[in-house]
Design a binder for these strands. Structure first.
Lengths: 224, 224
DNA sequence: CGCTGAATTGACGGACATCAAGATGTGTGG
DNA sequence: CCACACATCTTGATGTCCGTCAATTCAGCG
C-alpha cells in the first residue's frame, strides 16, 4: 500500500532508533513540508490547540494521547517513519502529540494541503484515503480494547512487527508504560505478559525493547 | 454543529421510535437520496462487502458492528435520525450495519457524492467534516473502553441524552445486549449498573428502555 | 392464559489492578 | 573504570471488579 524510496537522511544527533528505517515512504506530503526535529518526550502539539498542520514522520516515533480527568493517559496511536498524523482534528486537535524518541518530522500547513487538494483530484483522494485509514486504525484499536491482556499484547506485537519492516526482530521505540497506556493495561500486566510469552517460547526478549517473534502463528491464534 | 429544518416525513408504518424526532437534520445527503426501509435486525450491509453507498437515517436506529473470531460482537457505533453512516469504509466495509428497529434510511451512491464533491467545494468540505467527526466519535469510544463499568454506562447515558434531543427522559432504541456489546461489558453488568444508578437516585427507569436522568452532574462526575 | 425473549438478581471465580520490593540498565561525575 | 543516582523493567502477594453460570421476574403477544 505504501510506496518506498531509497533516500537516506542525516541522522538526528542522538536518536536511539535512528537505524530503524532508511526506507522513507513517500506520501501526499512527501515533497512539500518543512523539516523539524523534536527531542524525546517533546510536545508536538497539545489537545485543544488549533489544528494548523499535518505531520509526516521521517525518523523516530510519535504518540498521540488524551488524558482522563483522573490522570490516566490513553494513547490513541503510535506513528512510525512514513506515517502521517494530525488528521484526526477538526478545528482543534482532539489529542496531544509527543515525540517518543528524538524524531524528525515534516510539517505542512493544513490549509495549503487542503487548498491544493481542491485543484488536484489525486491529492484530494489521497487525503481522503488517509482519513479513512486513520478511522480504520482507530476502529481496530477499539476492537483490541475489549480483548484479554494476552490478546492485546499479542496483537500489539504483530502490529508493530508488520509496521517496522518485518525483519527477524522488532525494535520497540516506546516504553512499557507507553504500551500499557496504548493497550489500556498496567505496566505490570504488560511486563508479565511479555515474560509469559517468552517462557512459552513464542517470543524472545533480546533486550526489553527488542523482541524476536519466534512463533507468529501462535501469537496470531492468541490475537483471536 | 448540525443544522436543522422543520420538515416532517411520512412515518414508517410500525416504527416504535417514530415519535423520537420530527427534526430531521439536513446534511450533505439531504436531498439526493433514495429512501429505503429496513426491518428490525435487518442487515443493511455486511463486513467485506464493497462500499457503494452512503446512508442517512430518517427514522429508527442503526448499529454497526464487527465480530471477533470467538463469537463476541463489538458494536462500533449507533446512528440516530439525521446521522450519516457508511463513511468508515475504503473499498470495502470494515463493519456490518443492521437496523436496530424498523428504520427509514436515505441511500446515496458514494461515487456520485464523491464526484459531486469534486465540483462543489462546499460538499467536499462537508464530506471531510463527516469523516473527521466519525473519527472523533470512534476515538471517544476508545477512551470509554478503558474506563470502569460505571464510567462507561454513565458516559453512554449522557451521550444518548445529548443525541436524542435532551428532553426529560431518554428513549433507548437498543437492547441491553446491544449496549453491552457497545461498551465492551456483559448484559448482566449493564443491568446491574442501571439498577445501581436508579437506587442511588441518579436515574429513574420508567421502563427498561426509557430512562430519566435525574442527576446529570453526578453522572458526569462518574464519567471521569 | 401460557409461551417466549428480555431484563434483573444472586453466588462464585478468575483476570487484572494495586501495592510493594527487587533487579536491570543507563547516564554522570570522580 | 568504577561508583552512584535514577529510571525502567521485572517479580511477588493480595485485593477487587467484572465475567460466568444459574435462577427468577417481567413484558409482550398469540
Amino acid at each position: 500500500m505504501r510506496t518506498t524510496a531509497n533516500v537516506t537522511f542525516a541522522m538526528p544527533s542522538r536518536s536511539p532508533v535512528s537505524a530503524l528505517s532508511t526506507r522513507i515512504p513517500e506520501g501526499p506530503l512527501g515533497l512539500m513540508g518543512a523539516s523539524m526535529r523534536f527531542g524525546r518526550n517533546e510536545e508536538i502539539y497539545g489537545e485543544d490547540e488549533p489544528a494548523e498542520f499535518l505531520y509526516q514522520i521521517v525518523t523516530g516515533a510519535v504518540r498521540t494521547y488524551r488524558m482522563l480527568d483522573d490522570g490516566r493517559r490513553q494513547i490513541v496511536a503510535f506513528y512510525l517513519p512514513g506515517d502521517i498524523f494530525g488528521v484526526e482534528a477538526g478545528e482543534a486537535h482532539l489529542a496531544s502529540a509527543e515525540a517518543v524518541n528524538d524524531s524528525q518530522v515534516l510539517v505542512v500547513k493544513r490549509a495549503s494541503a487542503m487548498a491544493r487538494a481542491e485543484l488536484q483530484r489525486d491529492l484530494s483522494k489521497q487525503l481522503w484515503m488517509l482519513a479513512v485509514r486513520e478511522l480504520q486504525r482507530v476502529q481496530q484499536h477499539s476492537l483490541a480494547l475489549i480483548k484479554s491482556a494476552d490478546e492485546r499484547v499479542a496483537g500489539f506485537l504483530l502490529e508493530m512487527a508488520g509496521r517496522c519492516g518485518s525483519s527477524a526482530s522488532v525494535d520497540l521505540p516506546m516504553s512499557r508504560q507507553d504500551i500499557a497506556d496504548y493497550l489500556g493495561l498496567t505496566i505490570e500486566t504488560v511486563s508479565r505478559t511479555f515474560t509469559q510469552f517468552a517462557q512459552s517460547g513464542m517470543i524472545a526478549l533480546e533486550t526489553s525493547r527488542r523482541v524476536q517473534l519466534r512463533n507468529r502463528v501462535a501469537l496470531g491464534r492468541l490475537n483471536a
